[in-house]
Amino acid sequence: MHKENQGTVLHQLRYDIYHGTRNNWLQYVGFIFVFILIHSFFLTHWQTLSSHGVVNASPSCWDYILDFFKGIQKVSFTDRRERFDLPIPFLLFNLSLTFTIGKYACCDLEGIGLLTLLQSKKRSVWWDGKCLWCVFHVLCVYALLFLTAFCFSALNGNSSMEFTPQLNQALSQIPTQTFEKWTLLQATFFLPILVSIALAFLQLSLSLWIPPVFSMLVIICLLVISAYFCNPFLIGNYFMLLRSDLVLEDGVSLQTGYLVSSGLLFLSFFCGKICFCRMDFLSRSEIYEN
């Protein structure tokens, strides 16, 4: 009677890209706005130092990104003279990402979401598709970050893909001249991508047990605590280069970052998948009446 067509993860992903990405294009405009704002601060800072003759080269694309992920110094709660610093780029970026993941992926099990679940033919297909969408969404956001940084650098006359040690030291307090480019790229870009994906999976899994808004709050708390405590298991530290052992003697290492992020990613994925494949989908009235 019906045409045979088994649900596949790719079908689910296509639906998610259409519904979660293409039809929510406005959220990416929001990200671009955030990136422009943060890059503008960096540009203004460079212009100030440049006008005083402290630096003479214009920033490259990777200089913008390095500064974006520099974070804040390790906080000492014993030193009363220490200035209270708020990691604005870190918070703005991660809160935006958390919100967009929560708004779509975590909330897509109500209304039409249940119908799409039935269409997917298998519970695991829905879960795998949603996780793939999270990866796709994170990659899109980082691509926008890279593009806006590239635009800023190109408009300033520097389309080079090299780090500028003089700028990195003066503007971001990071001595890039002492490290290999590949190490810096990992710390500046690839590891943050992995961490963002791990946090997205964690948020998605948590939303199976607690309401999506609370899963968002858990992620936000984790990030805020990471900002003020330098610990290899507080995953937000891997967004901040100033906490890395490249800069800080007792800082967090790249290897630990990969291990912790990968561990969290796989744990969230598989625990979430097992839970999702065994859970009951009840209406709110059925949950609260019983």
């Binding site: 019906h2 067509n5 639906y15 519904h19 209304g111 039409i112 979401g113 119908l115 997917s120």
Partner: peptide, 22 residues
């Protein structure tokens, strides 16, 4: 029935049909 409020009826059904395009 639960559909997406910001879409038209046809858009909602088309979205649903896109998962298994038969």
């Amino acid at each position: 029935p639960g559909f997406i409020g910001s879409y038209s009826g046809f858009q909602n059904l088309k979205l649903l049909a896109s998962i298994n395009p038969t």
